[in-house]
C-alpha cells in the first residue's frame, strides 16, 4: 500500500517533468525590467505569442534597475527601463559583455500623482512646488496652503500626508525625480534624478503595483504611478501644472504634446528626457520607455525573435497602446528606430 503510494508519486513526478517537454519546440526569450510599461508589455507578448505560437517572450516586471542589472549580467535576453542607462552603466555593459546596448523606445506614458484623501472626491490640482515640497518633507499636512491654494472649494483635511515611493530601483521613480529636479532646485541639489534616490521621507512600496496598493490601503497617502495603474485600480489622480502654467490632467494627447519637440530632434541613441516639456497642452511628467537590447545576440533564434517582435511592436503593436493608456510613438521616432534595428547583430 505504502509502496504503491510511493510509486504513484514517482510516476506523477515523472509525468510532471515530461509534460512541458512535449510541448512544441519554441524559442524562449526572457526579458525583465521596468514596471511602468508592464501592462503594455505583457499584453504585447501575450498577443504576439497567440499570433506566433513558436515564440514565447516571458517578461518580468522587476523594476528598471533590475532590468539594467540583469541585461548587463546577461541573465536575461533583453532589459527594459524607463530611465535611460547613464554613461557609467553603458561603460559597465561594454566591459562585461564586450558589445553595446541599444535603447529602443516602445511607447510613451505618464506618471501621475495618486492619493487617498478621505472626503476628497474631485481631482486635485498640484503645483510643481507642492509636489516637490511633499516629497521633500517640507509640506506635511493636506490643508497646507501650497496644496489648498489651487484647489479652491475642495475641503482638505488637516491630516498628515503619508508619502509613498518605490522601494525598488525604478524607472517610474526616475521619471518622477527627473521631473522634480527640473522644477525644484532644492530637490535637484538634495536628491536629484535617479532610479533609487535617497528619499527624504516616506514609505517604500515594491513596484508600481506596490505603490498603488499602499496608497489604496493607506488613508492620507500620496504616491506616484504610471497612468495605467491608476486607471486599472480606480485610484484618484491629480492634474499637474505644466511649464506654461496650465493644470493638465494626464491624457495621451498631453503626453504626445510633450514628446512633439523631442521627436523632431531625437538623438541617435534615443536617450532623451521629455519631462516638464514646453507647450500649453503638454503633460509635464511624461516619458518614453525603452527596451534594452544587446547589439550582439549570439543565439540566432532569439535574435530573430527579438528583431521580429520589435518590428511588430513598432508597427501593429502601436495600435494597441491607447487601450492601455499609453501614447503611440511619434512617426519620426518609429522611422528612426526601424533603421536602428539593423544594428542588432
Amino acid at each position: 500500500m505504502r509502496m504503491k503510494t510511493v510509486i504513484s508519486l514517482r510516476l506523477m513526478a515523472a509525468a510532471v517533468m515530461l509534460a512541458p517537454a512535449m510541448l512544441l519546440a519554441q524559442t524562449q526569450v526572457t526579458g525583465a525590467g521596468a514596471t511602468f510599461p508592464g501592462p503594455m508589455y505583457t499584453k504585447w507578448f501575450d498577443t504576439y505569442h497567440t499570433a506566433h505560437p513558436e515564440v514565447q517572450i516571458n517578461y518580468q516586471a522587476i523594476g528598471s534597475g533590475g532590468g539594467i542589472r540583469q541585461v548587463t549580467e546577461g541573465t536575461v535576453d533583453f532589459g527594459a527601463t524607463d530611465g535611460p542607462m547613464n554613461d557609467t552603466q553603458l561603460g559597465d555593459f561594454k566591459t562585461k559583455r564586450g558589445n553595446d546596448v541599444l535603447h529602443f523606445p516602445t511607447v510613451m506614458g505618464a506618471v501621475v500623482p495618486i492619493y487617498n484623501v478621505p472626503g476628497v472626491a474631485t481631482a486635485l490640482k498640484f503645483t510643481p512646488a507642492a509636489l516637490a515640497g511633499i516629497y521633500l518633507g517640507t509640506i506635511t499636512k493636506w490643508n497646507d496652503p501650497a496644496i489648498a491654494g489651487p484647489n479652491k472649494g475642495v475641503k482638505l483635511p488637516a491630516s498628515d500626508i503619508v508619502v509613498v515611493h518605490r522601494s525598488d530601483g525604478s524607472g517610474t521613480t526616475y521619471i518622477w525625480t527627473d521631473y522634480l529636479s527640473k522644477v525644484s532646485d532644492t530637490w535637484k541639489g538634495k536628491v536629484g534624478a535617479n532610479t533609487s534616490p535617497n528619499w527624504p521621507v516616506g514609505l517604500g512600496g515594491a513596484q508600481n503595483a506596490g505603490v498603488a496598493g499602499l496608497v489604496k490601503q493607506t488613508e492620507g497617502s500620496i504616491g506616484y504611478v504610471e497612468l495605467i495603474y491608476a486607471v486599472q485600480t480606480n485610484i484618484s489622480y491629480g492634474s499637474v501644472q505644466n511649464a506654461s502654467g496650465e493644470f493638465v490632467s494626464a491624457t495621451l494627447a498631453g503626453v504626445s504634446a510633450a514628446a512633439a519637440a523631442a521627436a523632431a530632434k531625437m538623438p541617435e541613441d534615443f536617450r532623451v528626457s521629455i519631462t516638464n516639456a514646453a507647450g500649453k497642452t503638454a503633460y509635464p511628467i511624461s516619458s518614453f520607455t525603452w527596451l534594452l537590447v544587446p547589439s550582439k545576440i549570439a543565439d540566432a533564434g532569439k535574435k530573430k525573435a527579438i528583431v521580429d517582435f520589435l518590428k511588430w511592436a513598432l508597427g501593429d503593436g502601436q495600435n494597441m497602446t491607447e487601450a492601455l493608456s499609453y501614447a503611440k510613438l511619434p512617426k519620426e521616432v518609429v522611422a528612426k528606430e526601424l533603421k536602428a534595428i539593423s544594428k542588432i547583430q
Binding site: 512541458p20 517537454a21 510541448l23 519554441q26 524562449q28 526572457t30 525583465a32 505583457t42 507578448f45 501575450d46 505569442h49 514565447q56 516571458n58 517578461y59 518580468q60 522587476i62
Partner: peptide, 14 residues
C-alpha cells in the same frame, strides 16, 4: 527561478 507568464519547458527557463 524568477517567474514566467507562460509554460516553461525543460529546466533551463525561468
Amino acid at each position: 527561478s524568477l517567474n514566467n507568464r507562460f509554460w516553461s519547458p525543460g529546466i533551463n527557463q525561468p
